[in-house]
Design a protein around this nucleic acid. Structure first.
Lengths: 337, 337
DNA sequence: ATTGGCACTCGGGCGGGTCGAGTGCCAGAG
DNA sequence: CTCTGGCACTCGACCCGCCCGAGTGCCAAT
């Protein structure tokens, strides 16, 4: 089947280019045992592949390298390789003795960057709406207070409230008592409404409503989505894949966070499984030469968080996908427990 | 005074090299109006400076570049330049509307990286020991609990406690009540002792002592020292100052954090003011070609935190020092308030 | 459909030659 | 004793021309 062989040729080109970072020619391919055909045959296939826009040559009389489209075809048709046992063991041993959420995320991102040899990014687990266990109000000065919300699933959120006036000690205490009563007795779904109703009562100070809002928001998931990175050094080591300038743009994009987060969300939007964006597919100027492999993790009942690996388009896709998938699975287990 | 002129020559070399990133020769220097002498004279001075090890030439018949020692001399003898008004305004406007500690640190590090065009690093404010306002205990499963400690200065710390057994609901509640009584009534200095005494009482479960330890630790300052970065892209843009490989090492060292923290501590150990480490002075292989400008901030009664800028040895020292000092001063004000 | 053969193209590497910036040294002037 | 102008020298950067070989496209043959 000539179609099969063409695919094989493409895969061989991808693998060759990924491992040597040099354009691969027909002769080199024919000596690989995989496809037992002559260079001339391969050249014909290459011409066809180039016609389809799957490969290109950097200049005449050089070997071929995959285009973004070529990588895409490769990724779509290749089965993600299995992780080596040593790597599986690494995951469990490395992550099992984490002590809290912070630690888990921290360890995960480091692990992922080591496994993939790329830049790893992990978003903090997003949490589902949960009951409030206690609200602590701390006076911080004449017109500011700190609200600490401890939720039933052991999250702790804090928010500062502008009071706009200087309530007496007794009133402050009273409000604190009441907001506790209301919040703790409410179910997650009724929380917002209950709090609003309470704040609207006669006799409540103006700042009661901002307090109510802050508490509700904290229960809902609270603070901004945060992501952490590791392995940015891998970008620098990526050899000739990046000009110094291009690397600057990538690092900027990473620090930007918001761009990356949106991208990750888009990628994992539909499916739970590993998703890949290749080069220009990122639709982002500064990421034109980078690929992202991402997956969601966490409870599948909505509270989905993201993690992924980012590197030059010339990356080991099967290996990276396997690592991302494995870490995502493991994190899901940990977070759900 | 020949000695004065030599210094002037050194400074001119440093400034020239910093701004052009190319070795500077005697002719170019003589045309600068600063020192009104002929190239030949400058050559003599250069020979002397080279003898002293302050400058060097990359290869014969090229201009001179400063050595680490040369930069050191420059830094020691130059007055830190003043910030431009626009920059001063930038600091105040940029930092004034921060809402909480997280936000302050986040904004500071970004600001510093923009002002210096280097990698900026800011350590979270370390806090002095403070009274405990409330301890919240949340059951997290059969044998684990989460302790949330809210301290009087509005910090919130959390720690997980391994219970090692499965206490009854009543006992759990009782311990929670008691640890609150003890903690809240204790003064900061007596806290550790009071908690230990309480945990050692008859009838306390085994895990009471780990709870006591966690609470005391949280009050003392709690979690690990954390640092945040910004502007790593500036490293990449630093032109030819770094090989791709060297840059990888630097990024690694940054992620390591512990190395950097130790270094920062050493630097600011004695004095409160801006400190500079140049190239090999860092005593660290991977930072051999980078310099660090650091300063402490925060209350001078012990709780000193650190911030700084890191970049290639070929950096604008006066400007960087001014920016670091300004941000440190501003942060001190904010944190003390 | 596959293969061997063949002419062609073009980038990379090598050697040689030139150019110029920068130096060190020295003798002379202030 | 210090500064200056002059001079010969060095050596890296750059340009040019050359060759080589990898890799290609095309074509005729199987």
């Amino acid at each position: 089947m000539t179609d099969d062989r063409r695919r094989a040729v493409l895969h061989a080109i991808v693998e060759g280019y990924v491992s040597t970072s040099e354009p691969v020619g027909s002769k080199a391919l024919s000596t690989r045992q995989e496809l037992g055909v002559s260079p001339a045959t391969i050249r014909n296939d290459m011409a066809a592949l180039e016609e389809e826009g799957l490969i290109a040559q950097p200049h005449t009389s050089a070997g071929r390298i995959p285009t973004d489209k070529g990588y895409r075809s490769f990724v779509d048709h290749v089965a993600a390789s299995a992780l080596q046992d040593s790597q599986k063991r690494a995951i469990t041993t490395f992550l099992s003795d984490a002590v809290d959420v912070n630690d888990v995320v921290e360890r995960s991102v480091r692990l992922l960057s080591q496994l993939t040899r790329q830049v790893a990014v992990v978003q903090y687990p997003s949490v589902r709406e949960s009951a409030v266990r206690r609200v602590e109000l701390v006076r911080m000065g004449a017109d500011r207070a700190l609200a600490v919300v401890v939720s039933a699933d052991a999250r702790v959120e804090q928010a500062t409230i502008a009071l706009g006036e200087d309530p007496s000690e007794e009133e402050f205490e009273r409000v604190a008592r009441e907001v506790n009563q209301v919040s703790v007795s409410a179910t997650p779904s009724s929380l917002q409404g209950d709090l609003d109703a309470w704040a609207a009562h006669d006799g409540q100070p103006l700042w009661a409503s901002s307090l109510a809002g802050a508490v509700a928001k904290s229960a809902r998931g609270g603070t901004v989505e945060r992501v952490v990175f590791a392995g940015t050094a891998n970008l620098a080591r990526a050899g000739t894949d990046f000009e110094a300038d291009a690397m600057g743009s990538v690092l900027d994009a990473l620090e930007e966070q918001v761009v990356l987060l949106r991208l990750l969300h888009e990628m994992t939007g539909q499916s739970q499984d590993v998703a890949v964006r290749i080069g220009s597919e990122t639709q982002h100027e500064s990421l034109a030469r980078t690929s992202i492999v991402a997956a969601g993790y966490g409870a599948d009942n909505g509270g989905l968080s993201l993690l992924g690996a980012l590197g030059p388009t010339r990356m080991d896709y099967p290996g990276t996908m396997a690592a991302v998938r494995a870490v995502a699975r493991y994190l899901s287990k940990v977070v759900e427990a």
